[in-house]
């Protein structure tokens, strides 16, 4: 039963044009790194540029964009087009549905974000794996937190994608830039803290200690998942007109 649920979720998330578009965004990151490499930069230059690319593009734009689209689609699009009924009308515990959706979303988002960051890091620094691996791990952990948040969001509001985009652009982009105290609840800052801890002297120095980031990030994942399970247990299907 679980295997069928996993494969169905994978097909729903991958078998669409938007996956190609999102993969193309990751390709763009690799492409920029490649173009930069053509300029034959010095090692220090390369480290700085690749770090900025991985952090500013990879973690700050690619990661939230991919996770908000994939994360809100995992359950949200099924609620939207009514196919959720085919899952709810089966003897599946609701927590299992949420956990499977979360795991698959995480995996897909990691493939779409962490892999380009890893490759981009290797290309930009001509084989120095530290930046690539560091920010790829940060992206993978950030993807889990974002995925859990956006999955829960899609069960709270039917306009999850818009609200999620607003959170990313307004809260993480603007508010967290102006008011440093709010960074403690910014997923981007959590991911940056992880990246910096691994890379050492990060390209963008993180504002949070690693322990704080992991603790709060972990708590967010647990709470968001619990909320998602609760919401899916309570979800009601009305008729087309209701």
């Amino acid at each position: 039963m679980t295997a069928a649920l996993v494969s169905l979720t994978f097909r729903a998330l991958l078998n669409r044009r938007r996956t190609l578009l999102l993969a193309a965004l990751g390709g763009l990151l690799v492409l920029v790194a490649g173009i930069f490499r053509l300029g034959d930069p010095s090692t220090a230059e390369a480290t700085r540029f690749t770090g900025r690319l991985a952090a500013d593009f990879g973690l700050a734009v690619l990661l939230p964009l991919v996770t908000v689209i994939v994360g809100t689609a995992a359950v949200g699009s099924e609620l939207d087009d009514g196919t959720i009924v085919y899952l709810l009308a089966r003897p599946l515990p609701r927590w299992l549905i949420v956990l499977v959706k979360l795991a698959v979303t995480w995996l897909v988002a990691t493939l779409l974000v962490a892999v380009p960051i890893l490759i981009g890091g290797l290309v930009g620094t001509a084989g120095d794996s530290e930046i690539g691996i560091g920010y790829a791990v940060a992206a993978a952990l950030g993807a889990l937190e974002y995925a859990a948040v956006f999955l829960a969001l899609s069960l709270v509001t039917s306009r999850a994608l818009v609200v999620g985009l607003a959170y990313v652009v307004v809260w993480e982009g603007v508010v967290a830039g102006l008011f440093a105290g709010t960074r403690i609840v910014s997923v981007r800052q959590h991911a940056l803290a992880v990246g910096d801890a691994i890379v050492g002297e990060g390209a963008v120095s993180a504002e949070l200690a690693l322990s704080v980031a992991l603790l709060i990030g972990g708590a967010v994942v647990v709470l968001a998942t619990a909320l998602a399970i609760r919401r899916l247990t309570m979800v009601e299907l009305r008729g087309e007109t209701g």
Partner: peptide, 21 residues
């Protein structure tokens, strides 16, 4: 919602790449 995301993506990514370069 996808349209909004796509517009934001074009401008955000363009801006970030531009700033980095």
């Amino acid at each position: 919602a996808y349209a909004a995301g796509a517009v934001l993506a074009v401008f955000l990514i363009g801006g970030v790449i531009s700033g980095t370069l």
